[in-house]
Amino acid sequence: NKASVVANQLIPINTALTLIMMKAEVVTPMGIPAEEIPKLVGMQVNRAVPLGTTLMPDKVKNYE
């Protein structure tokens, strides 16, 4: 099972992601793969992401 990116804290809307905000966890359904964490640093979320929520591609601005 592959790990996904999960919010390590509440991430407010329009916040630029940092390493400390994210952790890798095996979750269902799968979100953004954990190996993409370095790519996500500096990207902004387009909505608030509660603690423990899986980061889905549609929650990150300009994620492809």
Rank of each mutant, 00 (worst) to 15 (best):
T15Q: 07
V49K: 01
P50S: 08
M22A: 01
Q9T: 11
L51R: 15
K39S: 12
G31R: 00
E36T: 05
A16T: 13
Q9G: 03
N8C: 12
N8P: 00
I37V: 03
V60I: 15
K23E: 05
N14P: 00
V41C: 08
Q9W: 07
V60R: 01
N62F: 11
N14F: 11
N46A: 11
L40Y: 02
P38S: 10
N1P: 13
T15P: 02
P29I: 09
T15F: 05
T53V: 11
I20M: 13
N1R: 13
L55T: 01
A34W: 07
T54H: 02
A16N: 11
P12F: 08
V41W: 00
N1Y: 14
V6C: 07
K59R: 15
V6R: 01
V49T: 07
M22D: 03
V6G: 01
N46W: 12
V60S: 03
A3T: 06
Y63R: 00
Y63T: 03
I37W: 05
L40C: 06
S4E: 01
R47F: 11
P29S: 03
N8K: 11
I37A: 03
M21T: 03
Q44V: 14
T15L: 05
L10Q: 10
I11Q: 01
A3D: 03
E64A: 14
K59L: 15
P33L: 10
N14Q: 04
N1G: 14
L19C: 12
P57K: 06
P33H: 06
V26T: 10
I37P: 03
K61H: 11
K61Q: 10
A34P: 05
V27P: 01
T54S: 04
G42V: 08
L10A: 12
E35W: 14
N14S: 06
V60W: 00
Q9M: 13
Q44K: 11
A16E: 11
V6H: 01
A24T: 07
V45A: 01
K2F: 12
E25S: 11
N14A: 07
K2Y: 13
P12A: 08
M43P: 01
T18I: 08
A7S: 08
A24E: 08
L40M: 02
S4P: 05
E35P: 06
V27F: 00
G42H: 03
P12M: 07
I20L: 12
A24D: 05
V6W: 04
V45N: 00
Q44E: 15
V5W: 06
V49P: 07
V27C: 07
K2N: 12
P57V: 03
L17H: 02
V5C: 07
I20H: 12
V60H: 04
P29V: 07
I11D: 01
D58R: 01
T53K: 08
A3Y: 10
V26N: 10
N1M: 15
M30G: 09
V26A: 08
M22T: 03
I20V: 13
G42Q: 04
T28S: 14
G31N: 01
K61F: 10
R47W: 10
G52V: 01
A3R: 12
A24I: 07
G31P: 00
T18E: 10
I13F: 08
K61R: 12
K39I: 13
G42Y: 04
T53P: 02
T53A: 15
K2R: 14
S4D: 03
P57T: 01
E35Q: 12
Q44C: 13
I20G: 12
A7W: 03
M22N: 01
M56F: 12
D58A: 08
K23Y: 08
P50K: 08
V6L: 05
V26Q: 09
E64F: 13
R47C: 15
I13K: 14
T28H: 14
A48W: 10
P12Y: 08
G42I: 07
I37F: 01
P38Y: 10
A16V: 14
K39G: 09
K2L: 12
R47I: 15
G31V: 00
E25V: 13
V60E: 04
G52E: 01
Q44R: 14
V49S: 03
K23I: 10
T15G: 01
V27G: 01
I20K: 13
T53G: 12
V5D: 00
M43Q: 05
P57A: 10
K23N: 07
D58F: 10
T54M: 03
P38N: 10
G42W: 05
K2Q: 13
A24V: 08
G31E: 02
N62C: 13
E35F: 13
A34R: 02
A24K: 06
T54G: 04
Q9E: 09
Y63K: 02
K39T: 11
T53E: 15
E36G: 01
I13A: 15
N1F: 14
P29L: 06
A48M: 14
I11N: 04
L19A: 10
I32E: 00
Q44P: 00
K39C: 15
P38Q: 09
N8I: 07
K59D: 15
A48R: 11
T53Q: 14
I32A: 03
M22R: 00
N8D: 08
G31S: 01
L40D: 04
R47D: 15
P12D: 07
N46K: 11
P57Q: 04
K2P: 12
A34S: 09
M43E: 04
T54Y: 03
L40T: 03
L40W: 02
P57L: 01
N1C: 15
A34I: 05
I32R: 06
I37Y: 00
V5L: 03
V45E: 05
M30L: 12
L10M: 14
I37L: 08
V41E: 04
A48H: 11
D58L: 02
L19Q: 08
L51K: 15
E64N: 14
Q9R: 11
V41S: 01
N62L: 08
M22F: 07
P33R: 08
K39Y: 14
A7D: 04
N62K: 07
E64G: 14
E64W: 13
E36L: 11
A3I: 04
S4V: 02
P50I: 08
Q44G: 04
N46R: 10
V60F: 06
D58H: 11
V27A: 05
A34E: 06
N46V: 14
G52C: 08
L51G: 10
P57Y: 09
M22S: 01
A24Y: 06
P57H: 05
Q9V: 13
N14V: 06
L51H: 14
P57C: 06
E36I: 07
V41G: 01
P33G: 07
G31F: 02
P57R: 07
M22W: 04
K39E: 09
V6D: 02
E64Q: 15
N8M: 09
T18W: 05
L51S: 14
V5K: 00
V27I: 06
P33F: 06
L40K: 03
N8S: 14
V60Y: 00
R47G: 13
I32D: 02
K39N: 13
E25R: 13
N14M: 08
